[in-house]
């Protein structure tokens, strides 16, 4: 499905209006996605299962 893949290319086409330009620096290449995923791999907490299991909260509003 199209929304399940990073489509920076279509991002590039649909923006360009005034409010977007200041902030978006689109990385429009697959290399950008690979690089991003490398970073995600490196910042994720180790031992995912245990970490997620340890995140227990008490009631809130």
């Amino acid at each position: 499905m199209s929304q399940e893949s990073i489509s920076a290319r279509s991002n590039k086409q649909t923006q360009g209006q005034e409010v977007d330009q200041q902030a978006i620096n689109v990385q429009g290449t697959d290399a950008g996605v690979d690089d991003l995923l490398d970073e995600i791999d490196s910042v994720l907490e180790s031992n995912a299962e245990e970490f997620v299991r340890g995140f227990v909260q008490k009631g809130g509003q």
């Binding site: 199209s2 929304q3 399940e4 893949s5 990073i6 279509s10 991002n11 649909t14 991003l36 995923l37």
Partner: peptide, 28 residues
Amino acid sequence: LLASDPAAAASTVDWIAKHQLMTSFAQR
């Protein structure tokens, strides 16, 4: 965008950005 190409709304819609990232991660 949500009607035509939701992926293109990722830079402004939190759930889409998160979903895209997870989808790419799951594929890799």
